[in-house]
Design a protein around this nucleic acid. Structure first.
Length: 510
RNA sequence: GGCCCGUUCGUCUAUCGGUUAGGACGCAAGAUUUUCAUUCUUGAAAGAGGAGUUCGACUCUCCUACGGGCUGCCA
């Protein structure tokens, strides 16, 4: 089948999008771009009960942050608008009725409470209740009731649903781009609800098939949890007479918890100390969840990390830009088994990306962090400071701890370092070093280092002794880059001032 | 319980019948070092078990075990 590639990401706005969802969106996007196709964002809000205000905006913002571009869809428009299913209600009823008229579906009048009771009853008898060929003619449905009775019930406002009439014993043969050929016997399946009168909305199954058809979707790339529904979807395409344009399917392996069992869930993040969501989230009820963006991850690193959970390029390359991912991506290199999410690897990816940023790229990341701590400085200096320290950064949130001493005069001195260095000859030595520094005109890193090293050698000091004492004066703690990075950055006047501060304010140990 | 999908180092994975089973994260040791890091080198670490097919199986088939998903008028 040689048609235009059109894929969709179709989340349900029931809360923040979790990283499993982001990965599904990413794979759809990569596939679309790889094949010069279109990426559609459809919002599947057919469950009025679980709708969460703000979730849709969160989804759109998340995709933007990740660099996953949408060609058509909610927030973007397009030839098949609207893309929000709640705005397409009238379409679905028509198709549901078409199925009933053609004998592929029927009306059912049971209430949810009645069905709950039946399930409970079956459970107590050690069986599983299934709404299928065995019971549908014994329950109040348009298959057991007369046409007049059905009409009367509908007319008087009884609630009803449309259920798919699952064939009794048929082997459905399916193909999955990742799993290959799959077969399932319909006798193990039940009669799924397709449409509910209570809120005049379809369920996922109907809306999904109708919209994918109407929106001319060519490939459905979704999570493995949908594999059990695939026969229903195949049958639905057949019932509508759309089998010839039915999309191809690819069911992605699930993202699993880092430890323990089960798929990655919202609660794992808080429990194990890593975000499960791309962005910070505040629910309407005030609950919050941390996000990769706010925790200090770069979107490129986040995406790179996610791309490799369930897919690999077939070689040892691990660092990929979005463009490189697009060029390398292919569904037949997606693995079949679930992938455990690994927080440590996410950090490693971020560190790699941090190390590769230029000063100019670092500046806009560092500026808001410095500003938040009351530091007003130029982009040039912010970028330079972060650049000097980037090798030690894992997250962008490390920036303050690693660069604060460039901008803030130390007022407190780390106890451990003070005890070790601020004793014996060192105060006198530092005073002499002050004189040496004062005499240097070219305060560049290279020149200062050359002069000071020569002085150290001439005086017979140990390098570590001098450097660490100077570090105590300039940084106040046993951290930071090479000392001459610091001297150059803060300049001569500031250097002398910080040395004076230490000498004046801290009495030597012993 | 039923149905479906899966199973290579602790984790993510390479291998598409013949390899000393490779890489990465993490871990350990060493080197570098001016603190803290970075970086570099080295090391430990795997084909779930059992039957087949084959000259030969991690790779193909079957069984078992284990893991996961689904089993809603949720997606």
């Amino acid at each position: 089948m040689n048609r235009e590639v059109r894929v969709r990401f179709a989340p349900s706005p029931t809360g923040p999008l979790h990283i499993g969802g982001v990965r599904t969106a990413l794979y759809n996007y990569l596939f679309a771009r790889r094949h010069g196709g279109k990426m559609i964002l459809r919002i599947e809000d057919t469950d009025s009960q679980r709708f969460v205000p703000g979730a849709e905006e969160y989804i759109i913002e998340s995709l933007k942050w990740c660099g996953i571009e949408i060609d058509e869809g909610v927030g973007y428009g397009g030839p098949h608008a609207p893309y929000r299913q709640s705005e397409r209600r009238d379409i679905y009823l028509k198709y549901a009725k078409q199925l009933v008229d053609a004998g592929w579906a029927y009306y059912a009048f049971d209430t949810p409470e009645e069905l709950d009771a039946l399930r409970k009853e079956a459970e107590e008898a050690g069986k599983t209740f299934a709404y299928n060929y065995e019971v549908r003619e014994k329950l109040p449905t348009s298959l057991s009731l007369t046409a007049e009775e059905v009409e009367a019930r509908i007319a008087r406002g009884d609630q009803w649903v449309v259920r798919f009439k699952m064939p009794e014993n048929e082997v459905v043969k399916m193909d999955d781009l990742i799993r290959g050929h799959v077969e399932m016997n319909t006798s193990t399946l039940d009669d799924k609800v397709l449409y509910k009168s209570a809120d005049a909305l379809p369920t996922y199954h109907l809306a999904n098939i109708v919209d994918d058809h109407l929106m001319e979707v060519s490939h459905v790339i979704r999570g493995e949890e949908w594999l059990p529904s695939l026969p229903l979807h195949y049958l639905l395409y057949r019932a509508f007479g759309w089998s010839d344009t039915q999309p191809e399917f690819a069911h992605l392996p699930l993202l699993l918890k880092p430890t323990g069992s089960g798929k990655l869930s919202k609660r794992d993040g808080d429990k194990m100390g890593f975000p499960v969501f791309p962005l910070f989230w505040t629910s309407p009820t005030g609950e919050t969840a941390r996000g990769y963006r706010e925790d200090g991850y770069l979107p490129e690193a986040f995406i790179n990390m996610l791309s490799l959970l369930g897919w690999n390029p077939g070689n040892d390359k691990e660092i990929f830009s979005m463009q490189e991912l697009i060029e390398a991506f292919s569904l037949d290199r997606v693995s079949k088994a679930g992938a455990r999410f690994q927080p440590d690897k996410a950090k490693w990816f971020n560190a790699q990306y941090m190390h590769n940023l230029s000063d100019a790229e670092l500046a806009p990341i560092a500026q808001p962090i410095l500003k938040a701590h009351g530091i007003e400085t130029t982009d040039e200096l912010a970028g330079r400071a972060a650049g000097i320290m980037k090798e030690r950064m894992t997250l962008t949130t490390d920036i303050w701890d690693l660069t604060s001493f460039f901008f803030v005069v130390p007022t407190e001195y780390e106890e451990k370092l003070t005890k070790k260095q601020w004793k014996g000859d060192n105060p006198a030595m530092l005073a002499k070093l002050r004189g040496v520094l004062e005499g240097i005109d070219d305060f560049s890193k290279e020149n200062t280092e050359a002069v000071v090293r020569a002085w150290i050698e001439a005086e017979g000091y140990a390098l570590g002794q001098v450097m660490n004492t100077l570090r105590l004066a300039l940084v106040g703690a046993g951290k930071g880059p090479g000392m001459f990075d610091v001297t150059e950055f803060i300049g001569k006047a500031e250097c002398l001032k910080r040395i004076d501060n230490l000498i004046a304010n801290v009495t030597p140990v012993e």
